[in-house]
């Protein structure tokens, strides 16, 4: 009993470790502390999850009833009609396809570039490497608005306005620096022996990269690719500016300017349905790859 108490509450109660007499008082305090702590956790959980719950609830409420039931905590009757209307009322499926193609295409190209350059930045020594790393970091924190005018004229003069290719090209401004930066921090940690062994066996640098290092880099590639995918999937400013019709318009633009199937219904039931549709896959992905995402995020930002 006593050893258990010290173990589970070590952080909460310091005195328990060194002093024996006041233990009884401490354990009473501990119980209060633990209860308060659980309340704190409950408050945090509510704060973090409530808006999402509210969106799901609204999306299941028949849009005709929304005026009466909007403020109720539980839906009084549920319907999937809003989800059907999202796909019937507007080309939402096309928007999803656009987002999927643009995000995947951008990520695949970026990962290929990042595999090559992170090998160079992580395992080679050469002049200007630090300067180069700082430049890449600089580009990744660069405000998108700073290139908007130039990108707009570039994309128009290349004839890529309102196309998948135009969006992919513009998205690379943030995916390439990001993937290179994160991959470099992963490659740096791969043991040198692996590369040395390949070099001793007479492998060329490209063979070393693709035959020896790439299999080791696969988990990192998945993590980085996933984070890059999420960034592209969520991008709004470029998608809004460089598209003019649903042939290339992505999901965020569609949701941002959603008007619903008919003007007589409150469009929010459908907006929430559309929101849930695009969010659920992301949440599932994030939950599956939780550990990796957290390590990828922190590798990208903290470790540098």
């Amino acid at each position: 009993m006593t050893t258990n108490t010290t173990n589970t509450t070590g952080m909460n109660n310091a005195a328990a470790i060194s002093q024996t007499p006041p233990r009884r008082k401490n354990s009473a305090l501990q119980t209060v502390g633990t209860v308060l702590f659980w309340c704190l956790i409950a408050v945090i959980l509510f704060y973090v999850l409530f808006p999402f719950y509210w969106a799901i609830k609204t999306s299941l409420t028949p849009s005709g009833d929304l005026a009466q039931n909007a403020l109720k905590w539980w839906p009084s009757s549920t319907t999937f009609d809003n989800y059907v209307q999202v796909f019937k009322g507007q080309p939402f499926a096309r928007n999803l396809l656009n987002s999927l193609v643009v995000a995947s295409g951008t990520v695949i190209i970026s990962l290929l570039l990042a595999a090559l350059s992170s090998y160079a930045l992580g395992k080679f020594r050469f002049r200007f490497k630090t300067a180069l790393m700082y430049t890449i970091l600089g580009v990744s924190v660069f405000p998108q608005i700073a290139v908007l005018g130039g990108m707009f004229t570039t994309i128009r003069s290349l004839g890529l306005y309102n196309t998948w290719a135009g969006l992919m090209l513009s998205y690379m401004i943030f995916t390439v620096p990001f993937t290179v930066w994160v991959m470099t921090s992963f490659v740096r940690d791969i043991p040198n022996e692996l590369e040395e062994a390949a070099l001793v066996d007479g492998a060329s640098p490209l063979q070393t990269l693709f035959r020896v290092l790439l299999p080791v880099m696969t988990p990192a590639l998945i993590t980085t690719g996933l984070l890059g995918f999420i960034n592209c999937w969520n991008e709004y400013l470029f998608a809004l500016t460089f598209t003019s019709s649903d042939s290339a318009r992505t999901v965020p633009v569609s949701i941002g300017s959603f008007s619903g199937a008919s003007i007589y219904e409150n469009p929010f039931a459908q907006i929430m349905a559309a929101s849930v549709v695009v969010t659920i896959p992301l949440i599932v992905l994030v939950l599956i790859f939780q550990k990796r995402i957290v390590s990828g995020l922190t590798a990208g930002a903290v470790k540098g």
């Binding site: 973090v48 999402f52 999937w233 969520n234 633009v253 941002g256 929101s275 992301l282 994030v286 939950l287």
Partner: peptide
Amino acid sequence: LVPWAIPTV
């Protein structure tokens, strides 16, 4: 991670 995973828009 839920708010983080939800797209900004």
